[in-house]
Amino acid sequence: MIQGILLCSLTFLSFAIFVTVFRLVKGPTALDRVQALDALGINLISGVAIFSVFIRSTGFFEVILLIGILSFIGTIAFARFIERGVVIERNQSD
């Protein structure tokens, strides 16, 4: 029963990832693609959580935290680059 529900939710998650990849390929502007990558990171977090319930292992929780942090940093860097042209601004006091 539990395994069946988990397989069903993994299937739904695969559909969600497929749809997001469709927008990643098609998206008209660069920000659409950044947004699709962000959603892809969040869906990967969900996939790792479901998989760790599926095999009843607690060894993958660091991966959840790590993907969350890396996806957030990548999104912020891309958005800053598109908005201002640079990611890290130089010191302007000289």
């Binding site: 029963m1 539990i2 529900i5 988990l6 069903c8 939710s9 993994l10 739904f12 998650l13 559909f15 969600a16 990832i17 749809v19 997001t20 469709f22 927008r23 699709a36 959603a39 969040i42 869906n43 969900s46 959580a49 479901i50 319930v53």
Partner: peptide, 24 residues
């Protein structure tokens, strides 16, 4: 209780799927 937790996971996956449908 395990079944309830797994049901929470199923609800979350359906919400994520619907938001992806909205995304396209």
């Amino acid at each position: 209780i395990e079944l309830a937790a797994v049901f929470l996971i199923l609800v979350g996956t359906i919400a994520s799927f619907l938001s992806a449908i909205g995304f396209i």
